[in-house]
Amino acid sequence: MAVATKKPSVLSKSALAKVDQIIARHKDQPGPLLPVLHALQAEFKYLPEEALVRVAIGLDIPLSKIYGVASFYTLFNLRPKAEHVIRACESAPCHVRGAKEVIEALENALGVKVGEDTRDGRFTLELSSCIGVCGVAPAIMIDDEVFGNLTPDMVPGILARFN
């Protein structure tokens, strides 16, 4: 199945006003950047380029630095994602407990490669750094939900819960 990557759209006037509100809300707290980025993502599901430029102006932080932070954390989306985002942990504990096979099972079940969206816009498949549940490795997150102690044959059943 081919990829359907959504193109970022230009923000409406009301969306830009929303961005300014978010900046104003966090501007005066120490270390405002991460809270602002979280709030933007909660609002738009990703971090639109125009919004980040407004953050640069509003917080007086260089745009290059803001993008450096936004791109450093895998939990920030830099483009619009599908309805559900699957994050498969690729850290060492998950790796030695069979993450590779689980990721292959995800790719087969979804018909996409890592980094791609399913054509129907239901799932984005991504890799993630450690999600902090090494005790139940290998693990994945779908949106905010964690699934651990996985084997490849469990994958279709888990995906079915989101259909």
Binding site: P62, S64, K65, Y67, G68, S71, F72, T74, S129
Partner: peptide, 10 residues
């Protein structure tokens, strides 16, 4: 100037 920065990770 701050035109460039490290982006992405690892």
């Amino acid at each position: 100037v701050k035109a460039i920065a490290p982006i992405e990770r690892g």
